[in-house]
Design a binder for these strands. Sequence first.
DNA 1: CCTCTGGTTGGAAGCGCTTTCAGGAACAGG
DNA 2: CCTGTTCCTGAAAGCGCTTCCAACCAGAGG
Lengths: 340, 340
Amino acid sequence: MEAIPRPAARIADVAARAGVGIATVSRVVNDRGNVAAATRERVLEAIRALEYRPSSVAQNLSLKRTLVIGVVLPFLTEASPIERVRGIVTALASSPYDLALYDVESADRQQRAFRLLSDAHRTDGLLVVSLIPPDEEVRRLRSETIPCVLIDARHDGVPSVVIDDVAGGELATQYLLELGHRRIAFIGDKPTDPFRFQSSRDRTTGYERALESARVPIRPEYVREGTQSRHVARSIADELLRLPEPPTAVFAASDVQALGVLEAARALRIDVPEQLSVIGFDDIEIASYVGLTTVRQRLFESGRRGAELLLQALAGEPTPAHVETLPLDLVVRGTTRPTR
Amino acid sequence: MEAIPRPAARIADVAARAGVGIATVSRVVNDRGNVAAATRERVLEAIRALEYRPSSVAQNLSLKRTLVIGVVLPFLTEASPIERVRGIVTALASSPYDLALYDVESADRQQRAFRLLSDAHRTDGLLVVSLIPPDEEVRRLRSETIPCVLIDARHDGVPSVVIDDVAGGELATQYLLELGHRRIAFIGDKPTDPFRFQSSRDRTTGYERALESARVPIRPEYVREGTQSRHVARSIADELLRLPEPPTAVFAASDVQALGVLEAARALRIDVPEQLSVIGFDDIEIASYVGLTTVRQRLFESGRRGAELLLQALAGEPTPAHVETLPLDLVVRGTTRPTR
DNA sequence: CCTCTGGTTGGAAGCGCTTTCAGGAACAGG
DNA sequence: CCTGTTCCTGAAAGCGCTTCCAACCAGAGG
């Protein structure tokens, strides 16, 4: 337990101690053939004695790779990105790649782009989650042949793992319609949200389509937008429920927002699901605890699958499909009920 | 949007194009003084034209640093480590350091130690969460002067951020006692769990102390151990509640386990909190949704604080205290009630 | 006994950057 | 017009590793 600062051993130290050339040490370390057994043993002994570990930085420079996969995503603090990261971590666990996380939550888009770019060199591949990379950046990545896979985002020519948000919106709305609901409200994200507004908009489209094909008129006062937060969703729901003709069902574009709706209902002593049906989207972990009916998207799976695709690309295998669409399932729990 | 693979520009390319030496380019890039304005402009122009970005790998090799902080932790898939990671990410956001995640969930201890060691070179500092690093490793880290901070773990001479688990256990148990409960069960982790058994054991100690000072006899059949899972806790709780003389209150060593207790009670149609009080530990996000009374530990804060300490050490500032203990709070929600 | 073959080995060149060091230019003062 | 400063600048030496290539050694075959 001595605390004498001693610099880490370098390959030359090992070579000197074993009385061989550094090339030989390198061969032993990397298990590249043609080293006499006796020599190998001597080198191994020296490595042990010196506690030598190759500097990955130097290896990387020499090999022109980094063995790290960059994951760029917004809102790491929220439940659904976390779920995806879990999937990514799982897929990467058995690979030689490390994972570097870049949360762009607070950064403005400029800075985000900048970081991405300047980090291109320190990354063998990129996983971009819920973010659409600027054309400029995609061009660069491609010209430097750094593989990239998008998760929950699309960009021409970049492989991606997505869901069909329109279908998801339809699925949820149709289910409510089947239960007999006709006054169905929708709470989505603000289109000004630079990040995920596309998927929310698609879900809105799905909602509208479902209503249209059921010949239920769309009431503008039922279609609301807020930010992706329980708090805001709660106050929107509150307004909705105080309407002269309140909805009998609410479709929230995310579980987090659905939880806000649940809170609003509770505060107003409106029983769910007796007086109000609520359906969410995502199926985050909490959803199962509170018994929320929702549209499940495979968040974990999206991360895993995206990482797998990237790993394939990194391995030089051709990336199979350009856009991979993950299935959605309706998960019926306790917050929805037929109208009586 | 051409897809012609073109290798990334190197510093020499920039130098050539600008008609200067590479040293000058380096000076411009790093904003190190003494470059004539005209020269600087020419270099900047070349950088722009070639879309030059310095290779951080090469920089790192030259500078002998990596600008990455390694975070080693088990069970990234669970709620509480995630919460800590969030704190770490937050603290690191404004620093130049990147974050590399090493989840040791599946790996056995051997491999974990190995990874840690061999990665020492690719990391400027280490944050170890809920894991006690082997002496061997600590020695190495110290001799190579790689700063390290422990979160939710202790090791002689290594700064750490922890909580007082004994006090936490006492806090929870005392509260139940104050509510009038006398038949209080405890569900902790199996001591065989190589990872977190220490904190669970400390909480058990706290539980026992509280009972002792209240002169309430400890009943062995009330003190149970399981793994850190809702499922297992549920079946343990089930057994507990079927006892001829079932407990009127359960203290679970973690919120996740408390949720299992809640499930068991629901299945047995035992009303919480009317017939059974339940208190957890941690205050993970779900706890607030389900209204679980619990002992809050500042998970997010622990990550942030640990990262801050590491950053300080990295900056050469002396690390203030060796062991920093974060406060615990009793959060009373809806799963506890006085005995009538 | 000599040449050939194939397994071993070390020297040295790179990977792309930082930084030291010394040389040059320009300018001020004498 | 000369000398001393002050600035600017580029060559070159690392940083620690991989790998090409040439050299070497031994045993096999002739």
